[in-house]
Design a protein around this nucleic acid. Structure first.
Lengths: 210, 210
DNA sequence: ACACAAGCTGACCAAGCGGTCAAGAAAATT
DNA sequence: AATTTTCTTGACCGCTTGGTCAGCTTGTGT
């Protein structure tokens, strides 16, 4: 027992409070947008006094930035499924599954990202021009490799990527519309599987990799 | 000259001012969201005093509702290309072209619609449950007809529709991201054609209608 | 030419906003 | 047990917001 267990009470409640605030902020920012969200509402959802929020996150923008960053991180990790795949059907299929899972289990985050980009990315423009651009160019090269190897049809890799993003994120960003057209009911397990399978079928066949 | 030419000065300026305000509002709502938009900014963009906006549109919400309604109208008309098509390649191909044209020439409107739906459609829920649901069911029946006639593969019509909406609207809603990944430059005529062709190729081949 | 209606707008207001702060409570360190 | 550091919070502040309104200008019908 010479090891230090270390989670001091201070650190623990700090972590817990940050988690509470970030979770509440993600929800409120997703539902109201940056401009429509209020620190008071986030505080209420988190169950903390407003002044306490400003202790952990000095400004509204700083809190918002953290929320967007966290989402971006998750979003990038979905690409792991993409890498080291032997062929497009495996790689792209796994990527679609991963992104659909994010849409299902992280819809708030997806909406915040969408909102941010739609409004001209005032807060995360540097990410778009840095990490995202690099990531994109990497995947474009990978797809081009598959095309050159004759494993799929010669479509434009960039627009294929946009198609993958658009189709999968639609189920998060436009989830409310999807649910309404599903007679107001959330998608069932079977619905989600049907959606994923349809997307994979159409795209993989469409790029000649099925 | 017994005919009444009728555009009295009053009506003319009224029409012109409403047009100015709606155009400015569309832009500002798209760039800042409902919560982030201010009547003062809309007034500045329109080149009118703020009090004048409240003369034509009593509340911010009323103005916003008009903007969303106008967009929905345009959006629905794009479906005309869908109808009376002899086969899926023609009908869906024309629909993709029409929606891509809207994304290119009406990006603000598309963003306002996306924002509204993402935030739970607080203002236009009745449209989703009424007009949109009817429209959707109609197209689903049309697609199912093509499937039954053996003109395309048996995919789920509903999710195919979502795919069409998602892929085409992506170029409006995420236009900023697309431009950034295009090295900060707007898409050229050739880029837009490439995008449309890619979408049509992949989807039409993907549903076995190519 | 007149009178009435429609259109316009600067000045104003209550409400709600993001953010601050001083003073106290709780935990860690000595 | 004393002291220092971190955390917590109600009360508060300056500022912006959506919206109002009285008084003015402009257009229309007679």
């Amino acid at each position: 027992m010479t090891q230090d267990p270390r989670p001091s009470k201070r650190e623990e409640t700090r972590r817990e409070n940050e988690r509470l605030i970030l979770s509440a902020a993600e929800k409120v920012f997703a539902e109201a947008g940056f401009g429509g969200a209020t620190m008071q509402l986030i505080a209420d959802v988190a169950g903390l006094p407003k002044a306490n929020l400003h202790y952990y996150f000095t400004t509204k923008e700083e809190l918002y930035r953290r929320v967007v960053q966290d989402i971006f991180e998750i979003w990038l990790h979905a690409a792991d499924s993409f890498d080291n795949a032997p062929d497009p059907a495996t790689g792209i299929g796994a990527y679609i599954d991963a992104k659909m899972n994010i849409s299902r289990h992280h819809p708030h985050g997806s909406k915040v990202w969408a909102s941010e980009v739609m409004h001209g990315a005032p807060v995360i423009q540097d990410y778009l021009e840095g990490t995202l651009r690099d990531w994109t160019n990497g995947r474009i090269a990978a797809i081009q490799g598959w095309i050159d190897a004759g494993q799929m049809a010669p479509i434009d890799p960039r627009h294929l990527l946009y198609m993958l993003w658009a189709t999968t994120q639609h189920y998060a960003d436009f989830g409310h519309q999807v649910e309404t057209l599903n007679n107001g009911a959330p998608l069932s397990d079977a619905d989600w599987k049907l959606a994923s399978d349809n997307i994979k079928t159409i795209i993989l066949r469409g790029i000649g990799a099925a």
